[in-house]
């Protein structure tokens, strides 16, 4: 399979005077052409830092990419100079941000904002770029005549459509969507996700979708990776992880969702809080909250290992070295 994005062993720290915050601790990810990968995890798990690293946009200082390699469409991102980075951003990879309310410049018309990256990357004249911008607006379901309007004249859902139009204008190979629907209400969420799915399928693009909503992952993604405290604890196809989950943290996430089949049942939240990334516990970072943890868990950081020899499904949990170990959810056959 042709890979659009290949991250290997990425380590990103935020080094301030008071603390050395280990935001991302050696993650490896790959996204194939036309695939959508969902990156799931709590706030502070390092999802956004991972996404920013792909564009080499981690705020520096205090952010430092300490280790690893990022290959985007065959080019090593971390070895690029500023000019190459500027040429890559927006053209090969584009990003959709979380909050559409603040993601548009209030003093420029939306047409100008879509046209901006076209002028920059595709060497278009302002007139050509504006024409293309109108096409893009039509593509995301907004009337062309509205290209001359300012962002405050649009609703939240429409602003997010404009943001999508900006991101897709140059037909990037990879689209990074950082919680694109968190700020929208549920019906608009569904519309925007549907739109993104269609556009990506029609344009042979790959997408990295960052979210904390498992529902969104099930809806849109092909593959998924679960992040906890800067590490990937489980990854696989959506089917692998949803129907055959292996990591106690993944189980915890699913247990905190209401069950449609058994309504009225109490939710089982994961106890405790995520550890402070400036002071991670030894061994498995989830061990202090894990109902299955033993002393062995704190001895060493578990590596990602294939689940039953699967080529797609990997889990990083030491417990599987114990014979006969299975998650309660899998035992009960829920």
């Amino acid at each position: 399979m042709e890979l659009v994005l290949d991250i290997k062993d990425l380590v990103v720290h935020y080094e301030t005077e008071d603390a050395d915050v280990a935001a991302v601790n050696g993650i490896s990810l790959a996204i194939g052409k036309k695939r959508t990968l969902g990156l799931v995890g709590e706030t502070g798990a390092g999802k956004t830092t991972t996404a920013l690293s792909i564009m080499n946009l981690v705020p520096d200082p205090p952010g430092v990419i300490k280790n690893g390699s990022i290959t985007l469409a065959g080019n090593d991102v971390l070895a690029m100079n500023d000019e190459q980075l500027e040429a890559m951003r927006g053209n090969d990879v584009a990003m959709i941000f979380q909050d559409p309310m603040t993601a548009l410049n209030p003093v420029m018309t939306v047409g100008e904002q879509i046209a901006e990256s076209l002028e920059l990357h595709q060497n278009m004249t302002p007139e050509e770029a504006l024409e293309k911008a109108k096409e893009m607006l039509k593509l995301v379901g907004i009337a062309e005549t509205r290209a001359y309007d300012y962002p405050h004249q649009f609703s939240g859902g429409m602003k997010q459509r404009v943001v999508i139009a900006i991101a897709l204008a140059c037909s990037p190979k990879l689209l990074i969507a950082d919680e694109p629907t968190t700020a929208l209400d549920v019906t608009i969420q569904a519309q925007v996700l549907e739109l993104m799915k269609d556009l990506i399928n029609n344009r042979d693009m790959a997408m990295l979708l960052i979210t904390h909503s498992l529902g969104v992952v099930a809806e849109v993604c092909d593959d998924m990776a679960v992040m906890y405290a800067g590490r990937i604890v489980e990854k696989g196809t959506v089917d692998d992880v949803f129907n055959n989950m292996r990591h106690p943290y993944t189980e915890g996430l699913f247990n905190s969702l209401p069950n449609l089949k058994e309504q009225g049942e109490m939710l089982e939240p994961i106890k405790g809080l995520m550890p402070d990334p400036a002071d991670l516990p030894p061994g498995c970072a989830f061990a202090p909250r894990c109902p299955y943890a033993t002393e062995a868990c704190t001895a060493a950081v578990p590596e990602l290992e294939s689940v039953d020899g699967s080529a797609t499904h990997f889990v990083a949990c030491q417990a599987y070295s114990r014979p006969g170990f299975a998650l309660r959810r899998n035992k009960d056959g829920k």
């Binding site: 564009m55 946009l57 500027e86 040429a87 951003r89 927006g90 584009a94 603040t102 920059l120 900006i166």
Partner: peptide, 14 residues
């Protein structure tokens, strides 16, 4: 620090 400035970096603007 607003998001549209961040997104213009992500767009590749100098």
């Amino acid at each position: 620090d607003l998001e549209y400035v961040e997104s213009s970096y992500a767009m590749g603007l100098p």
